[in-house]
Amino acid sequence: MYLLYSCLLLFLLLLIYMVIIEPGRLTATHYFIRKSKKTVLDVTDAVDMYQGKTSITLAQLSDLHFSRWYPPRRLNGIIRQLLKTKPDMVIFTGDLIDDYSKWPHKKTTALVEKLKKIPAPMGKIAILGNHDYQHNGHYFVKEVLKKAGFTVLTNDQIFFSNQQVSLTIVGLDDDLFGQPSYEFEDTLAEWHLLLTHEPDSIEKFPLIHHFDLVLAGHSHGGQIRLPFYRKRTLGSMKYTHGLYLVTDQTLLSVNTGIGMTTLPARLGVAPEITYYHLEKEDKAATLVSPDSASSKTTGP
């Protein structure tokens, strides 16, 4: 009997952790990205040391999956972190809501107001994900994002330039339910970024080597990781989490997201914001990595 009670208690504690504690453990990872992608520096514990060597800092959010179980107030912690880290630009790689047919519309105003508070002096860019398309929800999602100050890219590209950097960002339509196009104009920007919700879609892109950095989401990193089991999702069967060097010039980063789908729980995959500190072009030949930064080869 005591063994049964002990097992029930452990199960209850694990359930509390999965449903309440881990979904609230917002983590941050900072990468210093050089034009040469063969080695990427994880500078999470040494961000200040790279401020003078960075031309622009991008923050990536993905897979928020707002629903009646995951309300807009969950953005509060994200906003607080972004106000502290002060990225130049915020990029959202899809799945704003979990299912439009079940969305509580009385929360729409609150969602727009929360999204408006996300700080990004150089702009907020977004693409759509497969869940945004469910039950024709993509019209609603686009409108919410635009009201909140996001530029939504659907097979579009946009150019940014200031005294520090120039970059072109291409945003693909969702690969599963949208109509992605793989033809874009080449530009003379220093950095070329590609945004796609499903990371496996890069295999369909004939000129992927033209991009320095590809940002994706969708996988949730499996959302619930067990020693003997990790779920893989159509669209992220090959690229599931972390960094991948897909060509000599192209780095793919798969963000494991913030919200949840199917089950309102996470285990072994805490919500994450990923920051990318792009190297100043004139520093490329002289950088020496300090001991406090860890060198990370690409691959999960």
Rank of each mutant, 00 (worst) to 15 (best):
L4V: 15
Y5S: 14
Y5N: 11
S6A: 15
C7M: 14
C7Y: 14
L8I: 14
L10R: 07
L12P: 00
L13Q: 08
E22V: 10
G24W: 09
T27R: 15
A28V: 07
R34G: 08
L41Q: 11
L41W: 12
D42S: 12
D42H: 08
D45L: 15
Q51D: 06
S55Q: 03
S55L: 03
A59E: 03
A59Q: 02
A59C: 09
A59L: 07
D63S: 10
S67L: 05
I78S: 03
I79C: 02
T85G: 00
T85I: 08
K86E: 11
Y100A: 06
Y100W: 14
H105N: 10
K107H: 01
T109I: 11
A110W: 01
L111C: 02
K114P: 00
K114N: 01
P119M: 04
M122W: 05
A126N: 00
H131S: 03
H135N: 11
F140M: 01
F140V: 03
K142G: 03
V152H: 01
V152I: 02
L153E: 06
S161Y: 03
N162P: 02
D174S: 00
L176S: 06
Q179L: 10
D186F: 04
A189V: 07
T196L: 04
H197R: 01
E198K: 01
E198C: 05
E198I: 02
I208Y: 06
H210D: 14
D212P: 02
A216L: 09
S219I: 10
P227T: 06
Y229A: 15
R230D: 13
H241D: 07
L245T: 02
L251K: 04
T256P: 11
T261K: 09
T262H: 12
T262Q: 12
V269I: 14
Y276P: 07
E281W: 06
E281D: 13
T286W: 14
L287R: 08
S289M: 13
P290L: 15
D291N: 09
D291G: 05
A293T: 13
G299F: 14
P300W: 03
